[in-house]
């Protein structure tokens, strides 16, 4: 059951890809990456619960901690001040 749910979570992660490729705006692509990051965290939690590996919690935590850095950097770099 958990394996199946992890698979669905992975599919939800991959479903952000078409939006990332198509866009249309740059912000669309960045939030697609953000959504894929959330899906990855969920998939990692589920894989950890399915296999009983607690090391995966650390991987998920690292992803969660760094999830917003590129989003913040994108917005901060967005309008060039020249």
């Amino acid at each position: 059951m958990l394996d199946f749910l992890a698979f669905v979570a992975l599919l939800a992660t991959l479903a952000a890809l078409p939006r990332l490729v198509v866009g249309p705006s740059a912000a669309d692509r960045i939030i697609a990456a953000q959504l894929a990051g959330t899906g990855t965290v969920a998939t990692l939690i589920l894989l950890g619960a399915a296999t009983g590996t607690s090391a995966l919690h650390d991987v998920a935590l690292v992803f969660a901690a760094l999830a917003a850095v590129s989003g913040l950097a994108f917005v901060a770099l967005r309008s060039p001040r020249r």
Partner: peptide, 18 residues
């Protein structure tokens, strides 16, 4: 719990800023 907190606040902040 930390995962939930961090992801929730990341999503909210990035969403707001974008």
């Amino acid at each position: 719990g930390l995962c939930v907190l961090l992801t929730a606040i990341s999503g909210a902040t990035v969403g707001h800023l974008v």
